[in-house]
């Protein structure tokens, strides 16, 4: 009796959710278009992360509008799990697979399997390695290099030709986003404002504590008086740097500070003047365009070439930080 009850419960748990997910998209779909395409979206995060939470709804809404019947998985950044989900997806023979790589270096077998089965793959949020790009039909998501460029442009404007020494806090060593943003920032600075000199650089590993420690060490190493500015690769890390500066009795408002993200953490820092500028990364743009890019590939709008859709790298400074166009999303 108990056994039956529990099984029924378990089955219901699965069913009802399945049903809920399905009906959501079908309701919206019914209003606009019939579900024409089966699409698997292999994501490494979902409602368990702030970014994923604001990424998913626009994606689902757009997919419903465009007639994509989405099946979404969340591998929680476990490469093995995503690989296995990829196998499941390929076996289900959908019309297309949307992939957000959990670990970029490990997706090649998945791409090959999809290719062998004739299923197109579009990439969202983080692009695959250069040599794997020919196995994918499209990329949509942030232009990580461009974000570095945009952050540097804000910096150069504020430096206004004066000599400024800066310290740099980068993302996790080896991470492709970290590498691209660092390169974008450094290339632009060298080109547009060679008067700005990078005195020291360290990884902050995408988290606030590591970043605070790294900044504190660099301040000691180069001397507080030599520092005229700070660049950190995201808002979380810049918050750590600002705390490190305050701990040394340095007012961050006196320095030029830029980063990337415009998150719920970064946007108020811009308003308070501690952060001079950041670059908006919109999770809703990201999610929505994952769906539109997939639809574009499915409807043949791409005729063979790899579609690349970069998220516009919108600069956010005190001038526009309160604008609804750049309202933080995550």
């Amino acid at each position: 009796m108990l056994l039956l009850g529990a099984v029924a419960l378990a089955a219901c748990g699965g069913d009802s959710d399945d049903g809920a997910d399905g009906s959501d998209s079908e309701d919206v779909a019914g209003a606009t278009a019939d579900a024409e395409f089966e699409v698997y979206a292999l994501l490494p995060q979902g409602n368990d992360q702030p970014y994923g939470t604001t990424y998913l709804p626009p994606m689902e809404a757009k997919a419903a509008e465009l007639g994509l019947n989405l099946t979404i998985t969340n591998s929680q950044y476990d490469a093995d799990k995503q690989a296995s989900e990829c196998e499941v997806a390929v076996a289900a023979e959908p019309d297309l697979i949307i992939l957000w790589p959990a670990v970029g270096d490990t997706v090649r077998p998945c791409l090959e399997a999809a290719n062998d089965a004739g299923i197109p793959v579009t990439v969202t949020n983080s692009d695959v390695n250069p040599e794997d790009k020919d196995l994918t039909a499209a990329y949509s998501g942030p232009d990580t290099y461009g974000q570095g460029v945009a952050s540097a442009e804000i910096f150069c404007d504020l430096a206004a030709g004066e000599d400024v020494g800066i310290i740099m806090v980068n993302g996790l060593t080896g991470n492709s986003t970290a590498i691209d943003r660092e390169a974008g920032f450094e290339d632009t600075v060298n080109e547009q404002c060679p008067n700005v000199e990078i005195l020291a650089r360290q990884p902050g590993n995408w988290n606030k504590d590591d970043s605070q420690l790294a900044a504190s060490e660099m301040i000691t190493a180069v001397g507080a008086e030599n520092i005229g500015g700070v660049y950190a690769a995201d808002d979380t890390m810049v918050a750590g740097v600002i705390d490190a500066l305050k701990a040394r009795d340095i007012d961050p408002a006196d320095l030029i500070v830029t980063s990337i993200g415009n998150t719920f953490l970064g946007n108020p820092l811009v308003l308070s003047g501690e952060l001079d500028g950041t670059v908006f990364q919109s999770s809703s743009w990201d999610g929505e365009n994952a769906a539109t890019t997939a639809h574009e590939v499915l409807t043949g709008g791409a005729d063979g070439d790899r579609v690349v859709k970069f998220m516009p790298s919108v600069k956010v400074t005190t001038d526009n930080a309160e604008s609804p166009d750049v309202a933080p999303e995550w």
Binding site: A6, G22, G46, N74
Partner: peptide
């Protein structure tokens, strides 16, 4: 797990189902 992945069930719900199965295995 494969069945739940195919149904597109959220990973959190998958965990709930697996938890129930574990408890079921123990209490039976």
């Amino acid at each position: 797990q494969v069945a739940l992945t195919l149904s597109g069930v959220q990973v959190d719900v998958q965990n709930i189902v697996i938890g129930l199965v574990l408890l079921l295995a123990v209490i039976t």
